[in-house]
Write a protein that binds this DNA or RNA. Structure first.
Length: 587
RNA sequence: GGUCCCGUAGCUCAGUUGGAUAGAGCACCAGAUUCCGAAUCUGGGGGUCGGAGGUUCGAAUCCUCUCGGGACCGCCA
């Protein structure tokens, strides 16, 4: 149970004792830190319901709470706010318990679930670009947070490895190298193990093919025919396609790896393809599919809908499937292979209507309960013009270029600061990489998921302010002071004593961890954890500036502060891990 | 045309079941280092919460209208 949950239960009891709904005893951090640490506003709505004076109710509750040794002060202010302060002994007691706890996940209690999380969506033969960035960063962090709390999470990259682009690639390659065995229908294999193309070839062939098909109808027909043949299982095309996928995957995986993002499953749209026919047959049996202008659709609108939800197209008039069909079949696949309790899609907010249609269709068809399918949408990363980020030439920025840009800038900042001199070239480069990636990821995660944000490398990379580098610095500094203390023979960490306001603030921040993690989990909003991380780093810096640690003369105080610093470091590093940021040993 | 989101300090943004004096970071101004990493810390100025009505004891938050910006709306994924 989190701290706020515990306090709410205690205050709720006091509400109950006064004959009021204990739910009203909800406690939150004080809006006025000058007056209190925590507050409960429940007396106001309680007064409305009970038709009584709010101040009188609040006073009765405050009197009940005053008897509790955990509280040093419970007062009533304004129209009926209940202000609460914990006693220093109580804070110290909780800190010592936290210190002894092996795994802080117990500060939050949830019902663990089996979850499939979809936060990839890269396409074969196309390099990763900024459009893939947010899904990867947010998804990775949510995956880690969910796992930390005990959920069984399977991350799936959901590769775009099917459909027309594959036919386009095949026909484009055939024009360049018509003698390859994959194109000769008289050959049925075996085919060469070595791929006939490099990554560079693919990245050149695809835009080439795509442009050609747009301009030339005959070329487009050719590509469509190849796509159909591939999907029917023509051996040469299948073999070639497997090479395309394998070559692409190596490159894609390497880039995700640089971002600290990994997937457990590398499934793709192709894996769902074979399930479409059976799924559609069942839907027809349930009379869910109907004809509409030659296409076959499933109507998902419901009575009482506030907004119009158009039907989901299952089959185009040419018989081809849409990505809605594929997404539905992917649900079938996931249910069969993972039997999840819930499926999460970390995908651009602009696709919310699509997911609404798919989720409803899945529910109607009995594939999976719609309320256990969640679209975790996010806003776009914009340029300074407020529009989705583009390169100076107006093209899409590759993820690789973005990562290089961040790393390079981090390297410059480190060189300017003179901090890493004497570290050696390899270590300095590694620090630059970690700082650059942390700057990028924290900038992304610290915005509320659903809002757009502006890419500003100078702001992201600043060492001061609410940035990734600031967090890394705080973490490194804790490590450093503890190492110094050990080297100086400052003794062991011991019982925590709360005296100075900076000690109290640090302790209260550390105790807020559970609520921060729970909020990030419950609302699927990692920025809530970012806010906590930043305020913890800040409050540690204040503590560090105000309180001597390793050379504090009083041995008991020294031991207490070593504990506090150790806890701060431990928690900060845990949060960095949950956010998917890597801190260097020193910087 | 229909639906949805957004408009808060000079800049970038928090503020999710309606609650006290609307917060943070940056920028700006003024300070702090005989001492554990000053990439830090302390203090300060800065707001008609787009606008107008309404509901409420109480509104940045809920409702209506309005102005401005953006997104989405079956045969691309």
């Amino acid at each position: 149970m989190t701290l706020l949950d515990e306090l709410s239960r205690r205050v709720g009891d006091a509400f109950a004792a006064a004959g009021l709904d204990p739910q009203l005893g909800r406690v939150k951090p004080a809006d006025r830190p000058d007056l209190a640490q925590f507050q409960c506003n429940g007396a106001l709505p309680a007064a409305k319901i009970a038709k009584k004076n709010p101040r009188e109710l609040a006073t009765a509750i405050a009197e009940n709470l005053s008897g509790d040794a955990a509280f040093s002060e419970v007062t009533v202010a304004g129209p009926g706010f209940i202000n609460i302060k914990l006693s220093d002994d109580e804070i110290a007691r909780r800190m010592n318990a936290l210190s002894g706890a092996g795994d802080w996940k117990d500060t939050v209690a949830i019902s663990p679930e089996k979850i499939v999380m979809d936060y990839g969506g890269p396409n074969v033969a196309k390099p990763l670009h900024v459009g893939h960035l947010r899904a990867a960063i947010i998804g990775e962090s949510l995956k880690r947070i969910f796992r930390f709390l005990g959920n069984d999470v399977v991350g799936d990259v959901h590769l775009g490895d099917w459909g027309l682009p594959m036919g386009q690639l095949i026909t484009e390659l055939q024009r360049e190298q018509p003698d390859l065995p994959y194109f000769d229908e008289t050959i049925e294999g075996p085919y060469p193990d070595e791929p006939p193309v490099t990554l560079k070839d693919l990245e050149r062939l695809y835009p080439q093919a795509s442009a050609a098909c747009k301009e030339n109808e005959a070329r487009a027909d050719e590509a469509r025919a190849a796509t159909a043949a591939l999907q029917k299982g023509r051996p040469g095309y299948r073999a070639l396609w497997r090479h395309f996928v394998a070559v692409s995957r190596r490159a894609i995986e390497a880039e995700y790896d640089d971002l600290g993002v990994t997937f457990d499953l590398w499934k793709g749209e192709a894996d769902a393809d074979s399930l479409i026919a059976g799924m559609a047959a069942e839907m027809r049996q349930k009379n869910l599919i109907e004809d509409s202008d030659g296409a076959q659709v499933i109507r998902v609108a419901k009575d009482g809908d506030k907004k119009k939800i158009p039907p989901l197209m299952m089959f185009k008039s040419d018989g081809g499937v849409t990505y809605g069909t594929t997404d539905l079949a992917t649900i079938v696949d996931r249910v069969q292979s993972e039997s999840p309790d819930r499926i999460l899609y970390v995908v651009d907010q602009r696709q919310s209507l699509h997911f609404e249609q798919v989720f409803r269709a899945a529910g109607l068809a009995g594939l999976f309960p719609a309320h256990r399918l969640e679209h975790i949408g996010f806003g776009t990363m914009n340029g300074k013009d407020g529009k989705p980020f583009k390169t100076r030439e107006g093209g899409v920025l590759r993820l690789r270029e973005l990562i290089d840009m961040m790393t390079e800038r981090a390297g410059e900042r480190i060189a300017d600061s003179g901090l890493a001199k004497g570290y050696g070239e390899a270590e300095t480069a590694e620090i630059a990489r970690k700082v650059g990636i942390a700057a990028l990821k924290f900038a992304d995660l610290s915005n509320p998921r659903t809002s757009d944000y502006v890419f500003d490398i100078d702001r992201f990379m600043a060492f001061e302010g609410k940035t990734g580098p600031y967090l890394l610095y705080a973490s490194v500094r804790v490590r450093s002071v503890l190492a110094k203390a050990e080297a100086a023979g400052a003794g062991a960490a011991g019982d925590i004593i709360i005296k100075a306001p900076e000690e109290r603030d640090l302790a209260l921040s550390l105790l807020a961890f559970g609520d921060a993690v729970y909020g990030a989990y419950d609302k699927r909003l990692p920025h809530l954890l970012c806010d906590h991380a930043f305020s913890l780093a800040q409050v540690f810096s204040k503590f560090y500036a105000a309180c001597r640690i390793s050379d504090e003369a009083d041995a008991r105080l020294r031991a207490s502060r070593l504990s506090l610093a150790g806890l701060a470091g431990r928690q900060l590093d845990l949060i960095l891990e949950l956010l998917g940021l890597e801190a260097p040993e020193r910087m």
